[in-house]
Nucleic acid binder design. Structure first.
Lengths: 150, 150
DNA sequence: GTAATTGCAAATTCTTTGCACGGTC
DNA sequence: GACCGTGCAAAGAATTTGCAATTAC
């Protein structure tokens, strides 16, 4: 689904949940869409939104991100650096994607493969735990940093 | 390895890394060992340590936990609730264990199975990423909460 | 003895909240 | 005109830091 389609869909979701479609919320959504590959913190979202709409407040960004998290439009994730980051959920993706965190350069790459199908089946049967979602991050050395060492 | 064995081993590690073996560090370690199954936050560790050694300061606990994280004695993890939690690494475990987070009661269960061997091989070959460790948490409904619904 | 470590308090950082004002249906 | 949403500033929570006093080795 393209950015415009996603935008329309989320607007509909907001409306159906009884929220208003304010310019601030739209600007925040646009920033999230334009930086889909990144994992922006609230401060970073604020920074980008402010370039479009300088009058916006940080608290509004936090409040918007909270709403979007509740509506499952974004996922709130944390990579142990003390800030919450917000990650747009992929349209149609059954599960949350995975991350590759490089221990040297700190870069975070997203991978889309659904790698956990079998593993979830094991967890469900062995622990009688109904899996709804997961968070999987690999820590290691990215290909760029490997190349630097050669 | 039993608690005492672990304690001795960590003391040795501290010593080899040039740190002093203070009573505060020992008390903090003991608390971590006694609550191995929990995922204590720094505040919680502080609370327990204070019962043994009331004169300890919260900053010391933070500093000790940082050292233990650097020495890879504990893992710092975050379950998106805004606090860092500290999880003792299992002796001899090749990889960090996994977690089952119940969305209803909030309980966190640890599972020891090494479920990711194949998945890591896929990641390494497909993305040329050298995997050093991982974080995997399943979100879902634990068996207790399932029973409540019946 | 002395350099590392501590406790305390102050400072920082991230996030949430209270509130008066503004915009919308 | 009720009400939702906003910006701002203040509050709150988690963590870090500066420093003088203390302690381990």
């Amino acid at each position: 689904m393209n950015a415009n389609g996603t935008l329309l869909k989320v607007k509909k979701q907001l409306h159906e949940a009884g929220f208003k479609l304010t310019p601030q919320r739209e600007a925040t959504l646009l920033v999230l869409l334009e930086n889909e590959k990144d994992h922006l913190s609230a401060e970073e979202v604020f920074f980008f939104v402010k370039r479009k709409s300088p009058e916006i407040g940080l608290a509004t960004v936090y409040r918007t991100l909270e709403i979007l998290t509740d509506l499952r439009v974004v996922d709130k994730v944390s990579f142990n650096d003390g800030v919450a980051r917000y990650d747009l959920r992929k349209e149609g993706a059954k599960h949350f994607h995975h991350h590759l965190l490089c221990l040297e350069c700190g870069n975070i790459e997203e991978i889309e493969d659904d790698l956990l199908g079998e593993v979830e089946a094991v967890v469900e049967s062995r622990y009688h735990f109904i899996v709804k979602d997961h968070r999987l991050t690999f820590h290691g050395i990215c290909s760029n940093c490997q190349a630097k060492h050669e």
